[in-house]
Amino acid sequence: MIKARVTVTLKNGVLDPQGKAIEGALDALGFSSVGSVRQGKVFDLEIEGADRAKAESDLNAMCEKLLANTVIEDYTVSVT
């Protein structure tokens, strides 16, 4: 079994209203040293019956087709 983590974040230049809301909330809680916040999402997956190369290929296809909106989001795949 291959374990993988996919991290999806907004591309630089894309407005992140949720990140701004978190930034404001942290400031209101007294964490004024936080300069900016960008939020994203993480997917932990277990791939069965595949070698590392096939798993990486499949994970990239999953990101391109479903897990990330590649118009406004970037993703990284980490396989262990």
Results as ranks from 00 to 15, higher is better:
1 M>W: 11
1 M>F: 09
2 I>E: 11
3 K>P: 15
4 A>R: 09
4 A>I: 05
5 R>M: 07
5 R>F: 01
5 R>N: 04
6 V>C: 04
6 V>I: 13
7 T>R: 10
7 T>M: 14
9 T>N: 15
11 K>T: 01
11 K>E: 00
11 K>C: 00
12 N>I: 12
12 N>E: 15
13 G>H: 04
13 G>A: 07
13 G>C: 02
13 G>R: 04
15 L>V: 11
17 P>G: 10
17 P>E: 05
18 Q>V: 03
18 Q>R: 10
18 Q>A: 05
18 Q>P: 10
21 A>Y: 12
22 I>D: 12
22 I>W: 10
24 G>L: 06
24 G>A: 11
25 A>K: 02
28 A>T: 15
29 L>C: 15
29 L>T: 11
30 G>W: 09
31 F>S: 08
31 F>Y: 10
32 S>P: 09
37 V>W: 11
37 V>Y: 09
37 V>H: 14
39 Q>N: 09
39 Q>E: 13
41 K>D: 02
43 F>E: 05
43 F>T: 12
45 L>E: 00
46 E>G: 02
46 E>W: 12
47 I>M: 00
47 I>A: 03
48 E>L: 12
48 E>R: 07
49 G>D: 09
50 A>K: 07
50 A>Y: 05
52 R>Q: 05
52 R>C: 01
53 A>E: 01
54 K>A: 15
54 K>G: 12
54 K>N: 12
55 A>S: 14
55 A>V: 10
56 E>N: 15
58 D>R: 14
59 L>N: 04
60 N>S: 15
60 N>C: 08
60 N>R: 11
62 M>L: 04
62 M>W: 03
63 C>R: 09
64 E>H: 02
65 K>P: 07
66 L>S: 01
68 A>K: 05
70 T>H: 07
71 V>Y: 03
71 V>H: 01
71 V>A: 06
72 I>H: 11
73 E>H: 04
73 E>N: 02
73 E>G: 03
74 D>G: 02
74 D>I: 01
77 V>F: 00
77 V>G: 02
78 S>K: 15
79 V>N: 08
79 V>D: 09
80 T>N: 06
